[in-house]
Design a protein around this nucleic acid. Sequence first.
DNA 1: CAGATAACTTACCAAATGGTAAGTCTATGT
DNA 2: ACATAGACTTACCATTTGGTAAGTTATCTG
Lengths: 196, 196
Amino acid sequence: MPAQTRDRILDTSLAAFGLRGYDSTSLDELASDLGITKQAILYHFSSKEHLLNATIDLAVKELGSALGGASKSQSRGFQRIEDLVRATFSLAARRPEVLGLVRLVSRQGGAASGELASAMSVMLGEAVRFVEAEMAAGRFRRLEPRMLLLAVYSAVIGVATEPEVMRALGLEPDLRSLVKARRETIEFLRAALIAD
Amino acid sequence: MPAQTRDRILDTSLAAFGLRGYDSTSLDELASDLGITKQAILYHFSSKEHLLNATIDLAVKELGSALGGASKSQSRGFQRIEDLVRATFSLAARRPEVLGLVRLVSRQGGAASGELASAMSVMLGEAVRFVEAEMAAGRFRRLEPRMLLLAVYSAVIGVATEPEVMRALGLEPDLRSLVKARRETIEFLRAALIAD
DNA sequence: CAGATAACTTACCAAATGGTAAGTCTATGT
DNA sequence: ACATAGACTTACCATTTGGTAAGTTATCTG
């Protein structure tokens, strides 16, 4: 099993980068978490930046497979939005580090963000067309589609990945609250989107 | 003018911490930006962590004065939400680092987050009561107030501080787009909140 | 069995980092 | 005139960081 270590490294670094940040994570830390030496990491990934790139690739893949099903579903109208939000919350509960990394990269924007940016562009492009079609069909309220999506994206990602704000609101960020948050987010979006 | 350097340090570190993160900002960098030595910083703030604390204090103050007016305004119903969103966008355009730091701290949650957390708790507490009153008066749609606020907070902060996502949507994060984003965010919230 | 290759580890290293100690320079109060 | 205190700077320092070089071990191949 030669390629197993490589996968373990990627997994651990995805968690570390996604939850604590790039600069806050040292290769030595990653290595000792994995019970190997730092040089083993540098054997598989020639530099920390390359490791980040590979980690982003993994996150993009996981994001795609988590949201791909919902995004390509045949459901129409608000049901499709609901499917997407459910898939996002499910990912946030299962692997919060993936969304954390997405947010990290989309903020920093470094040289490595190209791939993620283009992957997101594709997904967002599809989403824009979908929303426009629903608006044209009169099923969604008429709003600027891209701004609408930005607001929806922000609301979902924020709710799913800001545990401290939940605490400030007096809500424990446990599974039960997350389920409640999901339901409320969906109701919120339904209210905002459904044309009367 | 003895206390001037201290203020300049705080100002620069607020920008650096808020836009690039705590670990990604070194004292040497801050110092050379300011044209002083690192030890001058450590003279005013005995450690990097103390500097962070003082920086958070400043951010809390700026946040308070930027949103305080809108939050204590006498306006009722949706107008008050609109005032708040406008104030937030104005802050995001003028001093994005303040919101950046708020988000950074609210995510990391470190030992220093106490003050900010409590300040936010107060503001959010007021907001919850306001929303509940509006719902009781039948002016706002009935949703879970805290979850609603979390979604609103996330949407506004996200739209105001995620330039990369805007780029992925094909929108330049310049002032004009920000104005558009503000208008659309308000319309989005209006649609979500106003009871029919 | 020889040797090449993959998958590591041990040994280093230069630069950067947060922090300490001691000195300098200026203003102020006595 | 002089001590004192404030606001720094110059000189260091230990640790951490990302990265290189040179082994070591096991497996596979001719």
